[in-house]
Design a protein around this nucleic acid. Structure first.
Lengths: 192, 192
DNA sequence: GTAGTTTTGTAATGATCGATACAAAACTAC
DNA sequence: GTAGTTTTGTATCGATCATTACAAAACTAC
């Protein structure tokens, strides 16, 4: 019934995500996006809305894959401490292995815009809630299995872990000492 | 011998710092700066160089006061754990009390630019080195006084603390639950 | 084939970007 | 006073910003 799109919408969104992830919202121009996505501006606007809408879509795409990865890891039939160490270690390695050293797209977005953009603020708050709930469930699992002292407050430990998730992704953006970063994991796990 | 400046150079730098801190580097325009600093563009360029030079000066001003605050706190004649708790608690409170919720200027800058600006990258790496060294000294002090187990590696504990410093400043930008944030401090301190 | 629909490429919109040219203004030294 | 120096205000530079008008192009339905 009409002329078909000659580009893949999801692939374009992925491309946009990578640009925003590297350069931030204000640091990315429409020209940066159209170049990377290999479409022209009118197609971008017709398909994804304006710059802000595209950014939010890209951020949500990122968060979905991040959450899925974490939910998968939590399902593993391994000791809880091992799962937590795997999560933290993978974050370190992924950050160090990224040739562009972009850190975490959610953290980057929080520090750039959460204080000025209510929609981004809500997404960040919701993300925190979701991840903390995944972590708290994991810790409660460790408590019922006897791996973690049941006197401890699972919610607080989850917040503690969440703080360390965020901190690690900031540090790993400028510190490349893999051995050193990994050795900090022992200290983190000793608090659980 | 010449017409005198009618504005205070240090005060202007402080104003610029507050704008960059709130809006980031790319998000701040020269117009934002001249408005807040109450000078015109030619005066800005003559006094502080270009936008990037002014930004770096503002960042270094911020880091100096941050470091001074931390060095002061570390000198206190109090139990080491108490000092560490004070440092973390003050970071939480300061972030929550800031009506603009700007978080940490250094963290914001790392996540915005460290992967694209070698000068910023170096400043961030140097800052990490300095703060980790202050914290490691503090921990060694606690080890000689018997407050902290001397088997533990002071450098690693310092890195652990640094991670939590960074993490807390990211979280506190979107989470306003003061009681909750403070209760995570117990978990942090239990690892020391 | 033709009519109808949507995407595409080109080209341009006004606004704002970082940075400066230039001259009037305000000071010091003498 | 005058000469010399630097800052100020105004006005503007070309470049780029996000966004869109418009028409040719490419498809489907019939």
């Amino acid at each position: 019934m009409a002329r078909p799109k000659k580009f893949d919408e999801a692939a374009g969104l992925q491309k946009a995500m990578n640009v925003f992830w590297k350069k931030g919202y204000a640091g990315t121009s429409i020209s940066d996006l159209t170049t990377s996505m290999e479409i022209n501006a009118p197609s971008l606007y017709a398909t994804y809305g304006d710059k802000h809408k595209l950014f939010v879509s890209a951020l949500q795409t990122y968060l979905q894959s991040q959450h899925e990865w974490m939910r998968q890891a939590v399902l593993e039939q391994k000791p809880v401490r091992e799962i937590i160490r795997y999560l933290l270690a993978t974050l370190i390695d992924a950050t160090l292995e990224d040739p562009e050293r972009r850190g975490c797209f959610m953290v980057n977005t929080i520090t750039e815009m959460a204080n000025q953009d209510t929609q981004v603020f809500r997404i960040a708050a919701d993300n925190e809630h979701q991840i903390r709930s995944i972590l708290a469930d994991l810790i409660r699992k460790g408590q019922t299995s006897g791996e973690i002292a049941s006197e401890k407050d699972a919610e607080i430990l989850a917040s503690f872990l969440f703080i360390n998730f965020m901190g690690i992704r900031v540090i790993a953006a400028t510190n490349s000492d893999k051995k050193h970063l990994h050795s900090a994991l022992d200290a983190i796990l000793s608090a659980i």
